[in-house]
Computed example of a mutant assay.
Amino acid sequence: MSKPAIIPETTTAGIAVDPRTLDRVIPESRRPDGSVRKQIKIRPGFTPQEDVRRFRGTRQQQAEANALPKGHIIGWTPPPTSSAPKPGAAAASTSQSKAAKKNEKRKEKRKEKREVEKVKDNWEDEDEELPGTGAGDGSHSVDKPNWAAAPETKKSVAVKERAEKVASPTSEESGDEVTEKLEKLTV
Results as ranks from 00 to 15, higher is better:
89 A>I: 04
150 A>F: 14
85 P>Y: 05
54 R>H: 09
7 I>C: 08
58 T>L: 14
164 E>H: 10
187 V>Y: 04
107 K>L: 06
132 G>F: 01
88 G>D: 15
19 P>C: 09
170 T>G: 13
31 R>T: 11
139 S>H: 13
69 P>E: 11
61 Q>P: 01
32 P>M: 04
22 L>G: 09
125 D>F: 04
158 A>D: 13
124 E>M: 14
49 Q>A: 14
79 P>W: 06
48 P>I: 01
27 P>T: 01
139 S>M: 10
118 K>S: 08
58 T>Q: 12
150 A>L: 12
50 E>H: 03
6 I>C: 03
56 R>A: 07
87 P>F: 05
99 A>P: 00
9 E>R: 12
179 T>N: 14
162 R>P: 00
4 P>S: 11
76 W>P: 01
105 K>T: 01
4 P>E: 05
150 A>Q: 12
187 V>C: 06
129 E>Q: 15
79 P>Q: 07
178 V>T: 08
133 T>Y: 09
40 I>G: 00
171 S>D: 14
54 R>F: 04
15 I>E: 00
183 E>Y: 06
84 A>Q: 14
121 D>I: 13
177 E>Y: 10
136 G>V: 02
33 D>R: 02
84 A>I: 10
2 S>T: 11
186 T>F: 15
74 I>L: 14
123 W>A: 14
78 P>Y: 06
42 I>H: 02
150 A>V: 07
78 P>L: 05
124 E>G: 03
87 P>D: 06
135 A>M: 11
124 E>H: 12
114 R>M: 15
114 R>D: 04
77 T>W: 11
40 I>A: 12
88 G>E: 07
43 R>G: 05
141 S>L: 03
175 G>C: 10
170 T>I: 05
66 N>C: 06
95 S>W: 00
86 K>D: 03
118 K>F: 09
12 T>P: 01
25 V>Y: 00
161 E>P: 00
144 K>V: 03
5 A>T: 05
21 T>N: 06
113 K>P: 00
96 Q>P: 00
38 K>G: 08
117 E>D: 15
67 A>W: 03
71 G>C: 05
139 S>T: 14
186 T>V: 08
185 L>E: 10
54 R>E: 13
56 R>W: 09
152 E>M: 10
109 K>D: 05
118 K>W: 08
158 A>H: 09
1 M>T: 08
143 D>N: 14
115 E>S: 12
123 W>V: 10
128 E>D: 10
162 R>N: 11
112 E>F: 07
87 P>R: 14
109 K>W: 05
103 N>I: 05
81 T>V: 09
137 D>G: 05
12 T>S: 12
177 E>I: 11
7 I>V: 11
46 F>H: 08
60 Q>I: 08
11 T>D: 04
6 I>H: 13
9 E>Y: 06
66 N>P: 02
101 K>T: 01
157 V>P: 01
5 A>H: 05
66 N>Y: 11
22 L>S: 14
24 R>Q: 07
53 R>T: 06
137 D>W: 02
127 D>P: 00
43 R>Q: 13
146 N>A: 13
45 G>S: 09
140 H>V: 09
138 G>W: 08
20 R>F: 06
32 P>G: 09
98 K>T: 07
81 T>M: 13
20 R>T: 10
17 V>W: 04
10 T>E: 12
